[in-house]
Simulated assay, not measured.
Amino acid sequence: MSRYSALDLAALPDPSAIVALDFDAILEARLTELEAQLAEVFDAAKVAEVMALARNIAASPMRYLNEAAAARELYMENRINQAVRSVFLATATGDDLDQIGANRGVVRKVLDDSDADNPVMESDATFRARIQLVIEAWSPHGTEGSYVYWALDADDRVVDVAVYGPNHGLDPAIPPAEPKMVILSSEGDGTADADLLQAVYDNCTVDTRRPVADKLTVISATPVTYSVEAVLYVTSPEAASAVQDAAQAAVEAFAAGRIRIGRKLYRASLAAALNVSGVVDVDVISPAASVEVGPFEAAYCDSITITLQSITGGWRDV
């Protein structure tokens, strides 16, 4: 199966202008520079005396001054790093990301405005993905990315979109000019209701957004439900409560991140998510195998049961 895949911005290296922050290296460079400057004015004995204070006497004014100057230089380098990150789509956050979106005509969504003073806004990650996709939306030829963008733009409940055509090799095959769009909802088990499907269809079939020959079909993703049941083995009964909370949070985040159309859920990845700090071994009881997910389906976790069992590791755990 082939799907539209945007460039993975998270995999890009940092811009070369971003430097590593190292207070000790900055301090050492300042002390080296100080020593060189002193050597131009004073004899070697005087230079050694001053540098002994600057390098070795923690309470000396000379040491304090150099540490304070190094700290200020570190703050400045961090500020420069932040300024560099603020202008790139891959690294900008918050208001800086809003500015990049505005340059491309994309505005961050308000997800919940019931509290006028503290509205719930679209996350940086989701907003960044839409900004990246908007270039696809400028195409008048009905690319996958274009359909995905307008589907996401249609309603805040749309969390994932898949668009299939004749080149995706599905069985039965998708006829030419009859793309099929699959929608995953943020509500319930991910099933999109009729109102949401209609909203997406209406937003994607405006004459300026869809090739006139396309006969678009919009359907809901079908949930593939699974439950998580696992036994975690720990050697510290005293820390069991903290381990349980951390494991619960980790598996919830894992399950939420796998609510995607057509994405297989691997049992090994689930075990890795459960292996939080304090866990010695993980026994995943359910699911018994990796969860297969078809091109029109999405995995959905309907329950999580985590049991802790204490084991003795002997002197190695002392």
Score class of each variant (00 low, 15 high):
Q37G: 09
E49Q: 15
V134A: 10
L7V: 15
A137C: 06
A242W: 00
A299M: 04
G294M: 06
L265M: 09
D195T: 14
V276F: 03
L27I: 06
C301M: 08
A70I: 03
A45M: 06
A44P: 00
A192M: 05
T222F: 02
V218Q: 02
P287R: 07
N103I: 03
I311Y: 08
D207Y: 04
E28A: 15
D155G: 07
E33I: 03
T217H: 04
D153I: 00
R85C: 08
H141I: 13
E292C: 07
A173S: 15
E33S: 12
S60V: 01
I259M: 15
P140F: 04
V291R: 01
V163A: 03
E252P: 01
Y4K: 07
E49P: 01
Q132V: 09
P287G: 10
E67H: 03
I306K: 05
A247Y: 00
A268D: 13
A92V: 05
V291H: 02
A90V: 02
R55N: 13
L232M: 04
W138D: 09
W150F: 15
D95I: 08
A54V: 00
L274Y: 03
A213H: 14
A36V: 01
E40G: 11
A289Q: 14
A25M: 10
V87A: 09
A83K: 12
P176H: 11
S60Q: 07
L9V: 10
A253P: 01
T91C: 05
G169K: 13
T217D: 08
T91V: 02
D171H: 04
R128Q: 14
T235L: 04
D98K: 07
D8I: 09
R210F: 11
I26N: 00
R210Q: 12
P287S: 12
L12Q: 13
S290H: 08
L9G: 05
A177N: 14
A221H: 03
I57N: 09
E292G: 14
Y266G: 02
D193E: 14
I285T: 14
A10H: 10
D193G: 11
L53S: 06
K46N: 10
G101R: 04
R79F: 07
D171W: 02
A70K: 02
D155W: 08
E73H: 05
V158D: 00
G262Q: 10
I285Y: 09
N81F: 05
T225Y: 02
D171Y: 07
K264H: 12
R260Q: 15
V318W: 07
